[in-house]
C-alpha cells in the first residue's frame, strides 16, 4: 500500500521521508484505521508543512528577491539625492517616496507600496498555487493522503503555511526596508500623512500595523491560489493561473467603466494600508479591505475544501 506503482523516483523517496517526518511517532507504518490523532500531531502536520514551504529553494529565492527590493529603492534614492536633489521631482513614483530622505522609516512604507501591487502577491500566488498542485505534479500528494491526517486537515495545513508565507514575505520586505532605511537615512520623529508628528516609537508601531495590514491584504489571493491549486495537477499551471488572475484583477481595477465590480476585486483596497498613517486612523477602507479578504478566504477556502475532499487523487 505504501509502494508506488511507478518506479520510485527521488521526489517520491523524499516524500516518504517527509511523510515519516510528519508522522514520525507512528514509526513509518500507518495503520489504516488510525483515529483520535492527538493535538500534538495535528500541530506537527502544520509545522512540517510550514517547514516544507520554507525549505524550498524557490521560496528562499522569492524571499531574497523581496528583500532586495527595499535595498534597491533605498540605494537608488540615496544616489539620486546624494547631491542634494529631491526625489522624483516631488510627487512622482510610489507613495511616500518623497519622505524617504528625511526619515528612513518611510522606506518601509515605500517598499510595501512598491511591492504590494505585484511582487508580494506574485510570490504568494506561486506558493499558494504550488501548494497542492505541486505535490500532485511530483506525485507526492497521495503519500500525504495515506497518512491518517485527513484531507481537510491537510488543506488547512497548506492554507496555514501559505498564510505564514504571506506574513513572512511582508515582514522580510519591511525588515529589509527598515534596516536599509536606518543605514542610509536619518531616523526620527515621524510626520503622518495628516501632518501630525508622532514619536519614532509610535512610528515603528504604525509600521508594524502597516505590515500587518499588508499581510492581511494577501489573504484573498492566498485562498484563491489554494483553490486554483486543487483544480489541477500541474503546479506550473496553478501558479500561472493564480498570477494571471492577479494581473486580470489589477487591470480590471484600472477602468473607471468597471467601477461597479471593482469593490469586489481582491486588490481593490490594497493601498488602504496607508490609512494607518492618518491621524486619526481612517478605518473605513481598512475594514472594507479586511472584510473583502475574509470573504475571499471564506468563499475560495470552502470551494477548495469542496473540491479537494471530493476529488480523485491519482498522483
Amino acid at each position: 500500500m505504501w509502494r508506488a506503482e511507478r518506479s520510485p523516483g527521488r521526489t517520491e523517496r523524499r516524500a516518504e521521508e517527509r511523510a515519516e517526518g510528519r508522522y514520525g511517532r507512528l514509526d513509518g507504518a500507518v495503520p489504516a484505521g488510525a483515529r483520535a490523532v492527538s493535538p500534538f500531531r495535528q500541530l506537527s502536520l502544520f509545522r512540517s508543512e510550514i517547514g516544507t514551504v520554507f525549505r524550498r529553494w524557490r521560496t528562499l529565492v522569492l524571499l531574497g528577491v523581496l528583500a532586495a527590493v527595499p535595498v534597491l529603492v533605498g540605494v537608488a534614492v540615496k544616489v539620486e539625492t546624494g547631491d542634494g536633489g529631491t526625489v522624483g521631482g516631488g510627487g512622482g513614483g510610489p507613495a511616500f517616496l518623497s519622505q524617504v530622505t528625511n526619515n528612513g522609516l518611510f522606506l518601509v512604507f515605500t517598499s510595501l507600496a512598491a511591492t504590494l501591487p505585484f511582487f508580494l502577491p506574485m510570490a504568494v500566488g506561486v506558493v499558494a498555487g504550488d501548494s497542492l498542485a505541486g505535490e500532485a505534479a511530483s506525485g507526492t500528494l497521495r503519500y500525504l493522503l495515506v497518512a491518517p491526517a485527513g484531507r481537510t486537515r491537510l488543506l488547512l495545513a497548506k492554507l496555514t503555511s501559505t498564510l505564514v508565507f504571506c506574513l513572512a514575505a511582508t515582514m522580510v520586505v519591511a525588515l529589509s526596508a527598515l534596516a536599509t532605511g536606518a543605514l542610509l537615512f536619518p531616523l526620527g520623529d515621524v510626520t503622518l500623512l495628516s501632518g501630525t508628528t508622532v514619536s519614532f516609537g509610535e512610528g515603528l508601531l504604525r509600521a508594524l500595523a502597516v505590515a500587518g495590514a499588508v499581510a492581511l491584504s494577501l489573504v484573498g489571493i492566498a485562498a484563491l491560489g489554494l483553490f486554483v491549486s486543487t483544480l489541477t495537477n500541474s503546479g506550473i499551471a496553478a501558479m500561472a493561473t493564480t498570477v494571471g488572475l492577479l494581473i486580470t484583477a489589477q487591470i480590471v481595477d484600472q477602468f473607471p467603466q468597471l467601477a461597479a465590480v471593482q469593490p469586489y476585486l481582491f486588490p481593490h483596497h490594497w493601498l488602504s494600508f496607508a490609512d494607518v498613517l492618518r491621524q486619526p486612523v481612517y478605518w473605513d477602507q481598512l475594514l472594507d479591505n479586511f472584510r473583502l479578504q475574509a470573504l475571499y478566504a471564506a468563499v475560495f477556502g470552502s470551494a477548495a475544501w469542496a473540491r479537494f475532499t471530493t476529488k480523485d487523487v491519482t498522483a
Binding site: A298, V299, F300, S302, A306, R307, T309, T310
Partner: peptide, 19 residues
C-alpha cells in the same frame, strides 16, 4: 459521493450568497 460532492460545493456558493 455525487450527493456529498453537491453538498460540499453548496458551501462556497452559500457563503457567497450570504455575503
Amino acid at each position: 459521493r455525487g450527493r456529498r460532492k453537491a453538498v460540499r460545493y453548496a458551501v462556497p456558493v452559500a457563503v457567497a450568497g450570504i455575503a
